[in-house]
């Protein structure tokens, strides 16, 4: 079970190959059961309209000077002008750095925290206790992002927030104004985001650990491997496919648009210290001047490419380590 899952490291590549093979084989197939098309049609129509079309349209938009409030600008292609403009847009570069910092604060810490939590929970032998910890750890993931971020906004309140009440009670005379200081705002939001999301990775890791072959661990224990050695040389290597999956699924980290919209007021404040690229492009598209959807789409494309680069980097390193 565990090993078969480990073999699926290249699962997505295999899916792609299977897809290509299937397309090649269509010519030899008979039309078969026509009902199939009727059954698939509603789903396909909805998916094509609201998912596939925006994917292509969003890509094309990145190469236009589309301003929603300027009539007939939707197909005004301007080549790479958006990217040229971006290169000299200081706010963009600032936001890009903020995004990278935010990703660096949330992604590695989140994965490590999730891994630690999963390993701890997997070693709880009492069934009910383990179920309780699993319940707790996934609870924040189910909560609406708005509720979580607004709750943390209250937690971080300078005078009445629980965090500062606690710090004062512990004797800290002047606790930081978390969301009001340019130095603290990003780590504070990163901590809130971590609180919100780490349970997802934890549960994925846990499912992976529970699915592992117990005999491997028993054999290791007989050979004298301590708990730590088992974790380092068995658990973590066997969880690699899940590492990759989590990284692929964490596509939205760098943009962090809704989090910033919710927790900072005005968005990105203070001193634009929380202005991520996702937030900046959202404001360019929907809040500034003539709604520059084209420029925003171009920035979004840069974020997408960044994510693909990151994911393939991880993918390649993990694969070479395996060989």
């Amino acid at each position: 079970m565990a090993l078969s899952r480990a073999d699926r490291t290249q699962g997505r590549a295999a899916t792609l190959r299977a897809f290509v093979a299937e397309v090649g084989g269509i010519r030899q197939q008979r039309w078969g059961n026509g009902w199939g098309y009727a059954f698939v049609a509603p789903a396909l129509l909805a998916y094509l309209t609201f998912n596939v079309w925006p994917m292509f349209r969003g890509f094309a938009m990145a190469f236009t000077d589309y301003r929603f409030l300027i009539p007939n600008s939707e197909w005004s292609f301007n080549g790479l002008d958006n990217f040229v403009e971006m290169a000299s847009d200081e706010t963009f570069w600032h936001s890009f750095v903020v995004s990278l910092k935010f990703t660096a604060m949330t992604l590695p810490t989140g994965i490590v925290a999730a891994l630690v939590a999963a390993i701890l929970i997997s070693r709880v032998s009492h069934r009910r206790a383990a179920a309780f910890y699993r319940w707790i750890v996934y609870l924040p993931v189910t909560m609406p992002v708005a509720v979580v971020m607004l709750m943390w906004r209250q937690m971080y309140h300078r005078d009445l927030g629980y965090l500062n009440l606690l710090l004062r009670w512990l004797g800290v005379a002047n606790p930081p104004n978390w969301l009001g200081s340019a130095d603290w705002v990003l780590p504070s939001i990163a901590a809130a985001e971590l609180w919100r999301t780490f349970g997802f990775a934890t549960l994925l890791f846990l499912i992976g650990i529970y699915g592992m072959n117990r005999e491997l661990f028993e054999a290791a224990a007989i050979d004298g491997a301590s708990g730590w050695q088992q974790v380092l040389s068995l658990t973590i290597p066997l969880l690699k496919p899940i590492f990759v999956l989590i990284l692929v699924l964490s596509a939205g980290v760098a943009s962090a648009t809704e989090q910033m919209l919710l927790i900072t007021n005005p968005p990105g404040s203070p001193e634009n210290a929380a202005l991520t690229t996702g937030l900046y492009l959202f404001m360019q598209a929907f809040q500034f001047g003539d709604m520059r959807l084209g420029y925003a789409a171009a920035m979004s494309l840069v974020l997408g490419l960044l994510h693909i680069a990151l994911a393939s980097l991880v993918f390649v390193t993990m694969r070479t380590e395996r060989d």
Binding site: F50, N51, W53, P54, M55, R57, G58, F59, M61, A62, Y66, F68, E74, F282, A285, F286, L293, A296, A297, A298, S300, L301, L303, G304, L305
Partner: peptide, 10 residues
Amino acid sequence: RSGGLMALYE
């Protein structure tokens, strides 16, 4: 889905 939100808006 790069630019997906803008495309959806349109």
